[in-house]
Design a protein around this nucleic acid. Structure first.
Lengths: 226, 226
DNA sequence: CTTGCGATAATTTGATCATATTTTGCCGGC
DNA sequence: GCCGGCAAAATATGATCAAATTATCGCAAG
């Protein structure tokens, strides 16, 4: 069974459907803070900006709203959600409940190459922090956690966590823009050490510290913003 | 001029958009097991069955796929997901992590009327169990948990739990259809007692037992099905 | 005479449908 | 058994209709 239903489309490059491309582009823009919290999003504005029909845009927006990355603000207005303290509290509880478990599972099945790849990402992350490159930091930080979670081989839990990230992504950008990247201590080293030694409990504990610290940063940044 | 030929939107008191109505109808059908796991769903089949255009159907399906109630099975096939043991394991972990926390919060702010309403629902639930009415049992059981979660006043966590229910709903129906409703011990009494006495820890523990037991039922039912 | 308020018109946005285009699975012919 | 055409299903576009927000104009009060 080597040739099982290859999703090749047409003769040229296999291009994803338009609604999928629109979805991914908007999701990345939300995830990495290219939209400010509270910024309104309109269907027709996106159709004009992206040069596609309105049906794919509608589907992408509906999907993003279902995932929490966008919010329907009543009266025909779709916007990037603005986090308040209660939302941060709930997101913290959910992250603490799920991400350490994923780290625990990842520690069981992580190969040496996996750890090497994560270490390389973490090196890029440190570099971005030193340079003060907020955008790069956000991308690499997400890549670290996303790659780590994929190692856990738990698609349902991973998908839940991905949606949580979509919710606090925009605010993370705002917070980093305020305090810069220098004051971000890095708990990833502990996670990597635990993965190397296959210590599942240590990986879970290190991840819980990383999550707690990150959400605390957001909490303080939002409190300062009031 | 009265229009009786076309169900125009402005004519009746029906203010919900078509895609919303289609979404809710399909979601309830999935939640209460009116679709079997693995059953394929086509866009054109739904447009024909529901008598609406395909754009609202597309949006409803996209939303349900984002929420985990439907799955894209490659090659343009959309189907109700079939749970395997690993999926049940992940769903159990997520439910145990979230639902006791919601019960804990509900216990803090539950009023006497709230407890009374939940008790009434639980009475209906017991009645459904005695009669062996599986459909009624599923509806009332969901209503009990849904009402309870709404008391916690934690919309993000509640939304996450709602999606978990969407995932195991169809399989719950299959399991209940196999073993009937007689063998379902009811942990809800412990939850209600904890709510009455405002004991948050007891509510969380009782909810954890209820969740663990329910998922264990599903696990055994699916294992028997292999 | 200026200014504030309310009603109406106009523009913008969203929702739905019908249709054309593309892709895929299937079936019959070679 | 392999290849090419056929049909069905899904994707994408544009058009059309409904609703809401905004802008404008007129009237009245200070």
């Amino acid at each position: 069974m080597r040739d099982q239903t290859l999703p090749r489309r047409g003769a040229g490059a296999d291009r994803a459907p338009t609604h999928e491309r629109v979805y991914r582009q908007l999701r990345d823009q939300i995830l990495f803070g290219e939209f400010e919290p509270g910024q309104p999003v309109t269907i027709q504005g996106l159709t004009d900006a992206l040069g596609v029909g309105m049906t794919p845009v509608r589907e992408a927006l509906r999907r993003l709203m279902a995932e929490g990355g966008l919010e329907f603000m009543g009266n025909r207005r779709i916007a990037v959600p603005v986090l308040d303290a209660r939302a941060v509290d709930q997101l913290t509880i959910a992250r603490v409940a799920l991400e350490p478990e994923l780290a625990r599972r990842a520690a069981r099945w992580a190969s040496t190459e996996d750890v090497g790849r994560l270490t390389a990402i973490d090196t890029c992350l440190d570099d971005a922090i030193r340079r003060g490159d907020v955008g790069r930091y956000l991308v690499e930080n997400h890549r670290f956690h996303s790659d780590l979670n994929s190692l856990a081989d738990a698609p349902i839990l991973t998908e839940m966590v991905d949606r949580l990230w979509l919710r606090f992504g925009p605010s993370l950008r705002v917070v980093c823009g305020q305090v810069g990247t220098r004051n971000l201590p890095d708990r990833h080293k502990d996670v990597l050490a635990a993965l190397s030694s296959r210590d599942a409990d240590a990986a879970a504990q290190a991840m819980e510290r990383d999550v707690t610290q990150g959400m605390e940063q957001i909490n303080q940044g939002l409190a300062r913003f009031d």
